[in-house]
């Protein structure tokens, strides 16, 4: 890429420089949110088969009737 002046890239850099290290807060929020999603996912993975089994038994009992 050539080294000619590019106002678009200069604008981008000036915005980034002006924000400093304020992006770390967003990173922490992301990790917290991802942690919540993972937790819910784990709960579903852990208990969903049992819930399905209970529902299956319930429906099975009903069908015998």
């Amino acid at each position: 890429m050539d080294n000619r002046y590019n106002g678009f890239k200069e604008l981008e850099q000036s915005i980034i420089d002006g924000k400093g290290d304020q992006f770390s807060q967003v990173k922490n929020n992301l990790q917290a949110n991802k942690g919540s999603f993972d937790f819910i996912g784990n709960l579903v993975t852990l208990y969903l088969p049992q819930v399905m089994e209970v529902i299956g038994r319930f429906l099975g009992t009903d069908s015998k009737k």
Partner: peptide, 26 residues
């Protein structure tokens, strides 16, 4: 993060909106 934020603030024209958008995007 910096590049995404720069795009968000250029398009949305508001720093707080841009920060929220960046979080949602990531």
């Amino acid at each position: 993060s910096g590049k995404v934020y720069a795009k968000c603030v250029t398009i949305l024209k508001d720093q707080d909106d841009a920060m929220d958008a960046m979080q949602d995007i990531f």
